[in-house]
């Protein structure tokens, strides 16, 4: 009988140890998932900020270049796409679309030297460039946290707990190759 107690006790200890490590892994999972969510919120902040800047920029440019309606309406369409985007991949694609139309707008600005000298325009361009830098930074940090998360839920032993809890890999903030150029022409 005593032997049975000893073995039983040893078993219980092992189980306790297992439960303890599971608890630690659970904390790891929660922390890393929170990090991904927080970083995604940062990316969204900056995308929102960019979207907020666009109407100001367009209005300023309109003051000098009235006859470029096509670019203006396309930028507006790209902007609302960006605002409506759900999930990292869609947002990344919409953001790229905005990129390409903003590029056209800025190429167009080259034809209006007075506009380039406008103080408001210079300030807006700084804000826009700063926002693009911020997007680049937050996107890099988001992708890092996603890489970390995706690795964590795939390696042993966290993979056991992760699959029990139904934790799935997250999407990177990047457009699928091949979908970059989706020029939407709305009139």
């Amino acid at each position: 009988m005593r032997k049975g107690w000893i073995i039983g006790g040893a078993l219980l200890l092992l189980v306790l140890l297992g439960v303890l490590t599971l608890g630690g892994q659970y904390n790891t999972l929660v922390q890393k998932e929170t990090a991904v969510d927080a970083q995604w919120a940062q990316v969204q902040n900056q995308l929102q900020r960019r979207a907020d800047l666009i109407p100001n920029l367009v209005n300023t440019v309109k003051g000098y270049a009235k006859h470029e309606q096509e670019v203006f309406s396309n930028i507006a369409a790209a902007r609302s796409q960006l605002l409506a985007a759900r999930g990292p991949e869609e947002a990344a694609r919409a953001n790229q679309n905005v990129d390409s139309w903003l590029g056209r707008l800025l190429a167009l600005v080259e034809n209006y030297p007075q506009l380039k000298a406008d103080a408001t325009f210079t300030r807006l361009m700084d804000e826009l460039a700063g926002t693009e830098n911020r997007i680049a930074v937050e996107r890099m940090r988001y992708n890092q946290s996603v890489r970390d998360w995706n690795a964590t839920i795939r390696v042993f032993p966290t993979v056991i707990l992760a699959s029990l809890l139904g934790k799935a890999p997250r999407q990177y903030f990047q457009a699928q190759p091949g979908t970059e150029q989706a020029p939407q022409v709305n009139f």
Partner: peptide
């Protein structure tokens, strides 16, 4: 439970 517990506790050190 036994197998899982021992495996998990072993690998926890390596993780």
């Amino acid at each position: 439970a036994l197998v899982l517990a021992s495996l998990v506790s072993l690998v926890a050190l390596l993780s």
